[in-house]
Design a protein around this nucleic acid. Structure first.
Lengths: 119, 119
DNA sequence: CATATCGTCAACCATCCGGTTGAATATGGC
DNA sequence: GCCATATTCAACCGGATGGTTGACGATATG
């Protein structure tokens, strides 16, 4: 699965990983802190972070004994460009955003992380 | 996996399915014709089409004994909106497009479908 | 009616995925 | 040196995925 689009899309296909990205949008975080709001083991989150890192969606820098995770939003660009081949999804489609949030918010499953960001 | 973002992203995570979408961008097609360029069974393609349909990325309409597959690019909008939360990937990022195509074209694996569209 | 075409269904298989647990490997602080 | 903290590793498990094959139900066509 070396294809970068494969990696990016399949990384994004998991709600836990999308939630992690949303958290990192607010600030860089240590692995332990990323794991905190999730109802699963630290090892599981560590694996999720590896997937995100291999897709290029985050980078991880070890400083001391803590490993800092940093969002790399540029990695979304290839995927975004690919999708744009199917129509123009302008950056400010507020209509679509509204419908999307409406559909999503009384939605599922996930824990409770940072709020304000849809998973 | 009822979450629509889960469905869309994981549908997009497979290169065969992305290739199918690219083919349907040019024209509606019957299942058999979709399957033609791929080195796998008709049943396999039929399953891929089901995945795409459940994600809302295509619709299928049976007319006579042939089932026509039609692209539904609107389904990409929720995913696109989600990604836009991470930065502004405007609809015309030609710089990114160029890098992306360069990286992709001497790329992988897939059969030979319609060309002109990166998988 | 007989036959060919279109597409799905069902069973099966190998592999991947998301999770667990427990042990192991740093590194930091006292 | 000793203990706690931060993170990964390794083995395991159940369920999803992507593919195969063969049989089947519809729909055209001669």
């Amino acid at each position: 699965m070396s294809n970068p689009l494969d990696q990016v899309f399949s990384a994004l296909a998991d709600p836990t990983r999308r939630a992690i990205l949303a958290m990192l949008l607010e600030d860089d975080m240590a692995v332990t802190d990323v794991a905190d709001p999730f109802p699963m083991s630290l090892a599981a989150i560590s694996k999720h972070l590896s997937v995100l890192a291999e897709a290029g969606l985050i980078t991880q820098e070890r400083r001391g004994r803590v490993k800092w995770c940093k969002l790399e939003p540029d990695a979304l660009r290839t995927a975004s460009v690919w999708m744009q081949g199917f129509g123009q999804f302008g950056p400010v489609d507020l209509d679509g955003l509204e419908r999307f949030l409406a559909a999503e918010l009384h939605g599922p499953d996930l824990p409770d992380p940072p709020a304000s960001f849809s998973v």
